[in-house]
Amino acid sequence: MTGKILVLALVLSAAIAAAAMYYLQVYGFYYEVAAEPGRDVQLVPQGGGAAEPIDYANFSAIDADSSPIRYRACFETGLSLEELSARFSPAEDPEPLNAPGWFDCFDAPDLARALQDGTARAFIGGKNIHFGVDRIVAVTDAGRGYAWNALNNCGQKAYDGTVVGEECPPRPEN
């Protein structure tokens, strides 16, 4: 009888731990980002410089303090891909990161296909939003916009243990 109780306690605690881990990974750390008109969607002009806001509507975003690359946003814009391409810096090899399933406006596989087939283009939304992390903003030809954070070259080096080098900004102290 003691063995059955012990096995039941182990199975129950494993199930509770698994459920808690799933909840924390998919729901627990995320929070909705409060919209800040004129600051939510910005793009870096060609030739560099400070990011400039663009016109947008229907902004929705999530973020988490547990990782600098958990930011995801969706919006709409009336600007055409040609207008954006003429003014703003393109992002090289953008790879949309998956969003939690409950944040259904952001579909990374569909966005990746749109970027690949040319019906969407990606731009740099900000350099070093956090150390080694850039904001990428993609816009489709239908005016749907998406934003996410991605590791830049310095971030990839810093997080895989490679020597960062002088071309990267100094890492902030905690």
Rank of each mutant, 00 (worst) to 15 (best):
135 R>F: 01
146 Y>E: 08
60 S>A: 14
91 A>N: 02
14 A>Y: 01
129 I>V: 15
36 E>A: 15
155 G>K: 05
40 D>T: 06
142 A>K: 13
107 D>L: 07
157 K>N: 08
62 I>E: 05
89 S>H: 02
115 L>M: 08
28 G>W: 06
137 V>E: 08
64 A>W: 02
77 T>G: 06
115 L>H: 01
35 A>W: 00
153 N>W: 05
27 Y>T: 03
148 W>I: 08
37 P>T: 02
4 K>L: 13
51 A>Q: 08
125 G>F: 04
56 Y>K: 01
75 F>I: 04
98 N>V: 05
165 G>V: 05
152 N>H: 06
112 A>P: 03
166 E>Y: 09
167 E>Y: 12
25 Q>H: 12
139 V>M: 05
92 E>A: 15
148 W>N: 05
14 A>C: 10
74 C>Q: 00
71 Y>D: 02
11 V>Y: 03
101 G>C: 00
15 A>D: 06
145 G>E: 04
153 N>P: 00
137 V>I: 14
160 D>S: 15
13 S>R: 07
145 G>Q: 01
160 D>N: 15
115 L>G: 07
48 G>T: 03
136 I>G: 00
118 G>N: 08
8 L>Q: 07
20 A>G: 15
151 L>S: 10
10 L>A: 15
122 A>Y: 01
68 P>A: 12
164 V>H: 02
105 C>N: 08
89 S>Q: 15
139 V>K: 05
16 I>D: 00
58 N>H: 13
147 A>T: 07
22 Y>H: 12
104 D>Y: 11
28 G>V: 05
171 R>M: 12
54 I>Y: 02
78 G>Y: 00
101 G>Y: 03
103 F>K: 08
1 M>Q: 13
90 P>W: 01
124 I>W: 01
109 P>R: 06
45 P>C: 04
160 D>Q: 12
72 R>G: 09
129 I>W: 02
134 D>G: 10
52 E>Y: 01
40 D>P: 11
21 M>D: 13
85 S>N: 12
56 Y>M: 01
112 A>K: 14
113 R>N: 10
81 L>Y: 01
153 N>I: 11
162 T>H: 07
84 L>T: 03
143 G>W: 06
69 I>G: 03
66 S>W: 07
154 C>M: 08
66 S>V: 14
122 A>Q: 02
135 R>M: 11
156 Q>E: 14
61 A>F: 09
106 F>D: 03
80 S>C: 05
59 F>Y: 15
155 G>S: 04
24 L>I: 09
115 L>Y: 09
93 D>G: 04
119 T>A: 09
47 G>S: 11
29 F>E: 14
48 G>P: 08
65 D>I: 10
81 L>K: 01
116 Q>S: 14
98 N>C: 00
101 G>M: 09
82 E>D: 15
152 N>D: 11
163 V>H: 10
70 R>I: 00
154 C>Q: 09
12 L>S: 14
66 S>G: 11
123 F>V: 04
164 V>I: 15
67 S>F: 08
152 N>I: 02
160 D>H: 10
59 F>S: 04
54 I>S: 05
70 R>F: 13
6 L>T: 13
117 D>G: 09
44 V>G: 02
37 P>S: 04
127 K>N: 12
138 A>S: 07
153 N>E: 15
148 W>C: 07
66 S>D: 12
